[in-house]
Design a protein around this nucleic acid. Sequence first.
DNA 1: GCGACAG
DNA 2: ATCTTGTCGC
Length: 247
Amino acid sequence: MWPVRPEFVPDPALSRDEMETLQHDIAAAANFSDDSEDDSQRPTPEEAPIVAGVDQAFDDETATSALVIMQSGEVIERVHATEPTEIPYIPGLLSFREGGAILSAFKELETEPDVVLVDGSGRIHFREAGLATHIGVTLDIPTVGVAKSLLCGQPRRSLSEPLPEGTRVAIEADGDVTAPEGTVIGHAVQTRQYNSDSRYINPLYVSPGHQVSAETAADIVESQSSEYKLPEPTRLADSYAGELTRR
DNA sequence: GCGACAG
DNA sequence: ATCTTGTCGC
């Protein structure tokens, strides 16, 4: 797959202001709902969706992006790409560090996924344009952001107590987010939990990337999770990226 | 100036 | 993200 919107390809050479301006344009082009302009690509209810997971690993000077494609619990394709890292990690600008390697990996891909699970935030982002949104809009493909910690926004209720498995808590826009206050920009999703007093698992922070609603994003992540907290395509992409870098 | 921040 | 041993609990 190649960028459908080349003007949105993340350029690490941009100034900080230019990056933020681009993110506002991306958010304006994003679709945070389940309504598609073109539903010819939608999976029919009787066929299992093709779900991709993407994750990156780093060494001293390169970023490696790994893509794992699954259908009905089976890996049907796996690709990767390595690119030099141009800029450091800056909260809010992650896609300009990792986006290039991700888009390179997508160029190697032959299967067209129905949805992509991206490691990081989507709409849970200061300008509603996290990594998942950036990749989704640039490729014009449905994406979901799956983060292990919360970048911004306000949980509707406290997350200080462990949540039971299956619980979902809305994350609302606050003053740090461009969306109107109270807008549901994602969910804390407890895919797994221990039944113990001393040990507990933190929730995932799931948000729409592109062409999915906050509710559907959480549904997809739950449906792709099995033995572990992370959805399977993400977990496999994570370990694949790790073993590629370790060599 | 202070706080707060995906990977 | 990455650097790493022990340790907790099923």
